[in-house]
Design a binder for these strands. Structure first.
Lengths: 208, 208
DNA sequence: ACATCTATGTTAGAGTTACTAACATTCCTT
DNA sequence: AAGGAATGTTAGTAACTCTAACATAGATGT
């Protein structure tokens, strides 16, 4: 069904719409996105997509969910490639996050706006597979491997996530060049993460 | 011109539209926002706003700019209320940021999406008054007052901003309850900031 | 093989919106 | 007081979202 022959039935319109939507948003932003444009790009009438998506927001939800899925998949690949228990694995996850967010701007907008909030809540969405848990595991492995004092791993992972997300958001917002013209965001994130971890470990040692 | 008498000319339609837009977005999100709705709320015809805003995005730009202005104003108030040179002043700025973002959801969306990026670049917008510079000054005052080794204050301020923004974004995204049902975001931000600063200072001492 | 059911297309159209054009009213300057 | 500038109004176009009614093709049961 992937030939160039035009058939009455598209064959894979649901996925084609998601791809078309992601492309259009990549090109022109999510603000001016229209269902009709995406339908034309997929080569079907403007009414056809409504067989697969209840409304425009449902399509955007699907795009956002694809974004979450892609991010968690890439996180798993990174974890598998890095030495378990090293702080480098944590850093690598952060760099991957920044890289994913900044190279897939179309997804970023949707994942972190109103759409993303609802998409994440959706019945059909698998929150258990969130990339966040990859980070939690990686943090736990680091503390275990280094023989460091126990910490609240969940708490720590959220803090690391916040840091990395903050750098990503600032990078995406376009405001950084006004404050620091040649900032190297991944390098700053790495330095900040190392400083933070150093402080955390020092506090833990002090407490015992 | 603030009486209840209905006159042909509104008198302050530009501001009324910005207020109406902020309210509507607060109530129903920025996705479904329509110029026509805002015009009805302001009590004018749907064409009237175009005397004050070139198009819908120009109105949203103005709302976003109001958001930036409000944030920087509140930052200045916080700075003036806190002891200069204390780390508490830095923490207080962070808590104010989180509070501002989470209580003014309407602004947040606009400030950090496509609209915000353009609004921030606008010719008419005063970037020199950005709240970020309040943070820079506060960080510098802290290092001076405590007699700590010199650091790159700009660099450090961006890292602190990223942390605080990250916590705010995560709080706004609605995802946190799925990972940590009763997380106290401001408390986590404070703890993370203190850990981070401790690490930074330890590194500075080590380097000398 | 054949009929039929269901999924998934199409066209047509109603209602809403963004924005423009032409016109109306009021304000402000001189 | 006159007249231009500013800022409203109504009317209208094009595009968009979504629905209804109908068309076609795949899938299923006999």
């Amino acid at each position: 069904m992937s030939s160039a022959v035009k058939t009455y039935h598209h064959g894979d319109l649901r996925n084609a719409m998601i791809v078309a939507a992601a492309e259009l948003i990549e090109e022109s932003g999510s603000l001016g996105f229209s269902m009709a444009d995406a339908a034309r790009r997929a080569g079907v009438s403007t009414a056809a997509p409504y067989r697969h998506f209840r409304d425009k927001e449902a399509l955007l939800d699907a795009v956002a969910q694809l974004g979450f899925f892609g991010l968690s998949e890439s996180a798993r690949r990174v974890r598998d490639a890095e030495a378990e228990g090293s702080i480098e694995a944590i850093i690598a996850l952060g760099k991957n996050y920044i890289s994913y967010v900044t190279t897939k701007a179309a997804f970023y907008d949707l994942m972190w706006g109103d759409i993303g909030a609802r998409a994440f809540e959706a019945e059909s969405f698998d929150r258990k597979a969130a990339g966040f848990y990859v980070l939690v595991d990686t943090v736990r492995a680091y503390f275990n491997a280094q023989g460091l004092p126990q910490v609240n791993v969940l708490d720590l992972a959220i803090k690391l996530w916040a840091m990395v997300h903050g750098f990503s958001a600032i990078a995406m917002s376009g405001k950084l060049p006004h404050f620091h013209p040649d900032a190297d965001v991944p390098a700053m994130m790495e330095a900040a993460t190392r400083s933070f971890m150093r402080g955390v470990i020092a506090e833990q040692r002090n407490a015992h």
